[in-house]
Design a protein around this nucleic acid. Structure first.
Length: 490
RNA sequence: GGCCCGUUGGUCAAGCGGUUAAGACACGGCCCUUUCACGGCUGUAACAGGGGUUCAAUUCCCCUACGGGUCACCA
């Protein structure tokens, strides 16, 4: 049975590269009726971050990547936390010592550091390989500190990767790497191999930065006589400057960052699924089940891709538009009620905003003119396409003001926006103006904006007569004043 | 520096010997619209370079250039 695993180390946040790896692991498992396992790789006690595991589980849950086994839910292959498996690694390493594929190394850190000082790329000189088994054991039992190193044989090692194909390296490129550290805990490379084997992992996914250590893994699998899993190395996600995506610049390297910026989890998942993988056709909107259905390892590309926030933003907007109005309303309500104090039909405001925003939070900026008329310049009244000038605007506004004042606007017969719309059009006809020549100035006067999420009539309706008239009068005032001032300037 | 990997428009990408080299984002234009947005139509824009192989190379091979990765008692 297909079994994949997500094996993060608890560093405190979920990098999008990691998230994509988790996603693909999930998709492979789900598409093949397999299991998706989460394992925590905390063998570096120096780097442990409190609460980091919670972030991992929360992120997976929010993203919808539900795991079948893991430290939080258990499973038949536990424990799923590496720090609780130290004996397993130690036993495995000792087994390798017995079979001659590993040896204890008693070299002092200082000596090795000195070696690296001479040559930064120097490999371990294998001095302790010469220590005989009896002496090695005796020294270990005497309490002398040591690490356990892998003994790399002569020859070449071939690695088969599902994405990159076959890669062959000469074994003299490979160092006798440390398997067990002097604190008794395994290194990442060793723990990975041991765990993946004991947990029956069939597909090992990881970033392509690990492809150069894959030969070491194979050597270990062979030393143990274990079956080598399918490797699926994933191309890097970069930031546009060619470097690995990192937190410092845009501040959007992690799932949490993106969520904070207002991206929807579905949109994030959809977008990153398409970074480095293509379904082969032109579809680009996928739910998680649809992804599982369409996913195919052969669609994974080899070259790195740039994380494009703009495209993600577009996709986020698409997700917002597709959302049922009720759902959008629920998300937008907190934003709306903060941006508009005046009693309003929030549901209606939400509906107006929904097709116009890429982020829920942007609804605020769309409707904040409702509470307070923003400061605006009379230049807004001049619109070429609408054929408006300040003079025409003044005429229109004055006429509309008179009409509104005469319109009964007491509670029972508050005109609806259609009635108001008719009223505005009628005004235009009476003045011998085009519709836009009335509608445009009214919008400007009551909103102070040249772009609003709804038309002039709706705004009048929302604001009510008194406020509408007041704003129109303010507009008239502005236009009158500039008319008066202009001659003095020239 | 050694080793490994990669290179199709600004970005994501399809292509898997013969194509007018898709599509999407972004950008420009037009239409729709009382504004904006949506939607529709449309435009600009790419096979890193050089050698082979072949009747035919974006597709296969080699070299060069460029980019990236990796060489820890970190993962």
């Amino acid at each position: 049975m297909t079994r994949t695993r997500f094996a993060p180390s608890p560093t405190g946040y979920m990098h999008v590269g990691n998230l994509r790896t988790a996603l693909y692991e999930y998709l492979i498992a789900k598409s093949q009726n397999g299991k998706f396992v989460v394992r925590i790789e905390d063998t570096d006690q120096g780097r442990y971050v409190e609460g980091a595991e919670d972030i991992i589980f929360r992120t997976l849950k929010t993203a919808g990547l539900i795991h079948d086994e893991g430290p939080d839910i258990g499973g038949p292959y536990g424990p799923y936390i590496q720090s609780q498996r130290r004996q397993i690694y130690m036993d495995a390493a000792n087994h390798l010592i017995e079979s001659g594929w590993a040896y204890r190394c008693f070299c002092a850190k200082e000596r090795l550091d000195a070696l690296h000082e001479q040559d930064a790329y120097a490999k371990y000189d294998r001095r302790c390989l010469a220590v005989g088994p009896t002496e090695s054991l005796a020294r270990a039992e005497r309490g002398e500190p040591y690490v356990i190193r892998q003994r790399v044989p002569e020859g070449v090692t071939n690695v088969h990767d599902e994405v990159y194909g076959d890669v062959t390296v000469n074994n003299d490129e490979i160092e006798d790497q440390i398997l067990i550290k002097s604190d008794g805990l395994p290194t990442y490379n060793f723990a990975n191999v041991v765990d993946d084997h004991y947990m029956d992992i069939t597909h090992v996914l990881r970033g392509s930065e690990y492809i150069s250590s894959a030969p070491k893994y194979n050597l270990l699998y062979n030393a143990f006589g274990w079956k080598i899993p399918a490797y699926v190395h994933l191309p890097l996600i970069t930031d546009g400057e060619g470097a690995k995506l990192s937190k410092r610049k845009g501040g959007a390297a992690s799932f949490e960052d993106l969520m904070e910026q207002g991206f929807l989890p579905e949109a994030i998942i959809n977008y990153i699924a398409l970074l480095g993988w293509s379904p082969g056709d032109n579809r680009e909107f996928f739910t998680l089940p649809e992804l599982a259905d369409a996913f195919d390892i052969r669609g994974i590309s080899k070259s790195p891709s740039v994380f494009d926030l703009k495209k993600l933003a577009w996709m986020n907007g698409e997700y917002i538009k597709k959302m049922p109005p009720d759902e959008f309303y629920k998300l937008a309500l907190p934003v709306l009620s903060k941006a508009v104090i005046r009693p309003m039909d929030m549901r209606k405001l939400a509906a107006m905003a929904q097709t116009r925003v890429e982020f829920v939070k942007d609804t605020a900026g769309l409707i904040d003119f409702i509470d307070n008329l923003p400061e605006y310049s009379t230049e807004l009244y001049v619109n070429k396409k609408m054929k408006t000038t300040e003079e025409i605007s003044l005429r229109s506004l004055s006429a509309v003001r008179e009409k509104l004042k005469d319109t009964p606007w007491s509670k029972p017969e508050v005109p609806n926006s259609e009635a108001l719309h008719d009223l505005l059009l009628a005004t235009a006809e009476e003045l011998g103006l085009k519709n836009g020549q009335v509608l445009w100035p009214v919008r400007i006067a009551v909103s102070g904006r040249q772009a609003t999420p709804c038309g002039a009539a709706e705004i009048l309706h929302m604001l009510g007569r008194d406020e509408s008239v007041a704003r129109i009068e303010a507009g008239i005032d502005k236009l009158t004043r500039t008319d008066a001032v202009r001659p003095c300037n020239s």
